[in-house]
Write a protein that binds this DNA or RNA. Structure first.
Length: 288
DNA sequence: TTCCAGGAGAGAG
DNA sequence: CTCTCTCATGGA
């Protein structure tokens, strides 16, 4: 499949900005698993070339990559200072994905007190062990395990994948989804605050992880996950003092507006890729 | 060896 | 409400 005239979209920035752990780069193509099939995607300017192990729906992909959203309007809205302007221009075209809900819940349960490389490894080994093997043009990957499979596997088998103390959290979540106590379709219909509250009823999901799920799967663009990076960024760049996650959320929501989740993604990725993100020259961008 | 990572839960104060 | 400690794991 080919999607032409893709406006304001950068595949690399979108897939490498820490919101998904499932994509692998091979030459100039990205391979990943979405909806139980392998996707191979390449971007050449405004055109996306997509190959798949199964026939992928055009509308599914447009939704997954958030392509129908008016990103230009959002970035105009959150571009309120010279610092943000630099982050936006550096990663122009980065979009928030709309990923599958169960996989996003499980992935961010595993993400707590953990680093990107290891999160990717954990998801990979869980999928290898409990998912279905998929192949496409010599590329091998695995579907993400269903809640039912993880429930039957048990805590010990999940722990054996290297998940550490998060094993019981993941098993508990899988069980709740499998037995219907956590209704994923209902959550998809909820407002941001309702969905966040519902997700936080699960063990191992606090405010930060719930916000990641709301932002990277449920299209709640007002969600602001406060991790160690976002905390550093707001304490050092915007607030210039120690701050609690609640203070950061309240300030940022008021300062950037209803699309603070998009603002957050640009700040997060900028700080991760620009070692001098908090030096004097950067701080001066806000001193006017 | 100690520190850190897209944190959360439990307990104390 | 806010601290503080602990929870596996592996790479720096």
């Amino acid at each position: 499949m080919i999607i032409e005239n893709v406006h304001m979209f950068n595949l690399k920035y979108t897939l490498e900005s820490g919101q998904s752990f499932r994509w692998n780069k091979v030459d100039d193509a990205y391979y990943g698993v979405v909806e139980g099939c392998i996707l191979k995607i390449q971007q050449r300017e405004g055109t996306l070339f997509i190959d798949s192990s199964r026939k992928a729906e055009h509308s599914e992909l447009v939704h997954y990559f958030d392509l129908s959203r008016d990103l230009s309007a959002i970035l105009t809205e959150v571009n309120v200072d010279a610092y943000m302007d630099r982050a936006i221009n550096r990663f122009w075209g980065m979009r928030l994905l709309n990923q599958e809900l169960w996989e996003t819940i499980a992935s961010f349960i595993l993400s707590q007190n953990n680093n990107m490389a290891r999160i990717r490894g954990l998801i990979r080994s869980l999928s290898e062990k409990f998912g279905q093997k998929l192949t496409f043009e010599g590329y091998v990957d695995y579907s993400f395990p269903t809640p039912e499979v993880l429930t039957d596997a048990g805590v010990d088998e999940i722990f054996a994948c290297g998940t550490g103390y998060r094993a019981s959290y993941l098993w508990h979540a899988a069980q709740n989804v499998a037995n219907g106590d956590l209704d994923l379709d209902a959550i998809k219909r909820m407002s941001y605050s309702e969905a966040k509250m519902e997700l936080m009823k699960l063990k191992g999901i606090g405010e930060k992880v719930a916000d990641c799920i709301c932002l990277f799967s449920l299209e709640h663009l007002e969600a602001l996950p406060v991790d160690v990076w976002i905390k550093r960024i707001f304490e050092q760049i915007y607030l210039r003092k120690r701050a609690t996650p609640r203070e950061i959320r309240e300030f940022a929501r008021d300062y950037f507006g209803e699309f603070v989740g998009y603002a957050q993604q640009y700040l997060f990725h900028y700080a991760q890729n620009e070692p001098s993100w908090a030096d004097a020259e950067h701080l001066a961008l806000l001193s006017k």
